[in-house]
Design a protein around this nucleic acid. Structure first.
Length: 317
DNA sequence: ACCCAGGTGCTGC
DNA sequence: GCAGCACATGGG
C-alpha cells in the first residue's frame, strides 16, 4: 500500500471525464480501476490518496498511469494568466473550465485498450460505452480471481481475432463489430509496439492509427492523448464542436452560418448543434490552432478540461 | 415518432 | 478535398 499527498488530483472527476471507461466508485471515495490486465483499488480523501498496491507496482506502473510526475498546478496558473490577457466569451469559458477541471489528470492508459474502447465509443453515450467495453472484457478478457472476487482484463487482440468474424455477436456493438474484428486481426499481424508508436512524430502516429478500420481522426486523437502520451492531441467530437462554435467562433461567422442554415430549411429554428455540425473539420482545426496556440505541449490536457466541464454542466447553460 | 450519441466508411462530384 | 448518406443500438 502506497500513501501520497497529491495536489490537483481528483479521482471522481477523472472517472467522470470521459477518458476512462473501466473505473468505478465502489464506496464514497473508494475506486476500482482497470487497465489492460491490471486492477487497482484506490482511495481518496482530500489530497490524501491511498494506492492499494506494492510500492514496486506503484513505481513501475501506476505513477505514470496517473500522470503524477506532471505539474498540473503550473498548467492551471498558465491558463489563468493567459485568460487574464484575453477578453470575450472564449476566455471566460476557458477560465471557468480550468477552475472546474484543474484536478483532472490525463491518464496514460494502454494503447491497444484505447484503440478498441474508442472504436466502440463512436455514436454512443458514455454509460453505453462502459457496458459494451465491460461485456467485451467478460467474453474475451483473461479471468482473474482475487479477494473472493472475479474480474476480467481487457482482451488481447489475439483473443478477439481468434474468435472469428462472428465472435463479437451479441455484445450489442452494432456496426462496430466489423471494425473491432478487422482492427484486431491487423494489430495481431502487423501492429507496432507501444514504444514505436510513442516515438513517432505526432502526424505519423495519427496517420498510422487512421489506417485501421474504424479509426478516424477523432478516435486516433483519443488514442494518442489517452493511450500514447501525445499531450497535444486534440480530439474533435460533437461536444468540442459545440464549445468551439458557441464560445470561440466570431459573432460574424456564427451569424453567417445560421443565416445560411435557416435559408436552407424553411423557417425552422436552427439548433446550436446543427449549426456547430455544419462547420468543417478543417475550420475547427484552424480555430484550435489560433485559440489554443498558447498551450503548446498541453493542448490535449486543456481539451480534456473543457470537455469535462461541458459534460459536467449538463451540456448547456 | 423523432432526435441524438466522445464518428467512420463509402460514394460521387 | 468535401458534402451526403448508411451504419446498430439505446435513451430522452
Amino acid at each position: 500500500m502506497v500513501k501520497k499527498s497529491i495536489k490537483n488530483f481528483n479521482l471522481k472527476k477523472i472517472m467522470e471525464s470521459g477518458q476512462i471507461f473501466r473505473m468505478y466508485e465502489r464506496l464514497p471515495g473508494s475506486f476500482e480501476v482497470f487497465s489492460a490486465d491490471r486492477r487497482l483499488l484506490v482511495e481518496q480523501r482530500g489530497d490524501e490518496v491511498c494506492f492499494l498496491c506494492t510500492s514496486g507496482e506503484f513505481e513501475e506502473y501506476w505513477k505514470k498511469y496517473f500522470d503524477l510526475d506532471r505539474d498540473y498546478g503550473a498548467i492551471v496558473s498558465r491558463a489563468e494568466a493567459e485568460c487574464g490577457l484575453k477578453a470575450g466569451r472564449g476566455a471566460v469559458f476557458l477560465r471557468e473550465a480550468c477552475r472546474y477541471s484543474g484536478d483532472i489528470r490525463i491518464l496514460n492508459q494502454d494503447t491497444w485498450e484505447m484503440m478498441i474502447s474508442f472504436i466502440i465509443s463512436q455514436q454512443k453515450q458514455i454509460p453505453s460505452i462502459r457496458k459494451c467495453v465491460e461485456a467485451l472484457c467478460e467474453r474475451f478478457g483473461n479471468r482473474h480471481e482475487e479477494d473472493n472476487t472475479v474480474w476480467y482484463g481487457f482482451p488481447k487482440a489475439s483473443a478477439i481475432a481468434g474468435a472469428g468474424p462472428d465472435g463479437l455477436n451479441g455484445l450489442k456493438l452494432g456496426y462496430r463489430e466489423r471494425y473491432i474484428y478487422e482492427t484486431s486481426v491487423r494489430y495481431l499481424t502487423e501492429g507496432i509496439s507501444d514504444e514505436a508508436l510513442a516515438n513517432m512524430k505526432p502526424e505519423d502516429a495519427k496517420k498510422y492509427l487512421c489506417s485501421f478500420t474504424g479509426i478516424g481522426e477523432k478516435v486516433a486523437d483519443c488514442v494518442l492523448l489517452f493511450g500514447a502520451g501525445f499531450t497535444d492531441a486534440f480530439p474533435i467530437d460533437v461536444h468540442i464542436k459545440e464549445i468551439l462554435y458557441r464560445e470561440f467562433l466570431s459573432d460574424k461567422e456564427k451569424k453567417e452560418t445560421e443565416e445560411k442554415l435557416s435559408a436552407g430549411s424553411g423557417s425552422n429554428p436552427t439548433s446550436a448543434k446543427k449549426a456547430a455540425e455544419s462547420i468543417s473539420y478543417k475550420k475547427y482545426m484552424e480555430l484550435i490552432d489560433a485559440e489554443f496556440a498558447a498551450y503548446k505541449g498541453v493542448k490535449g490536457i486543456v481539451q480534456q478540461w473543457i470537455f469535462a466541464y461541458e459534460i459536467a454542466s449538463g451540456k448547456n447553460f
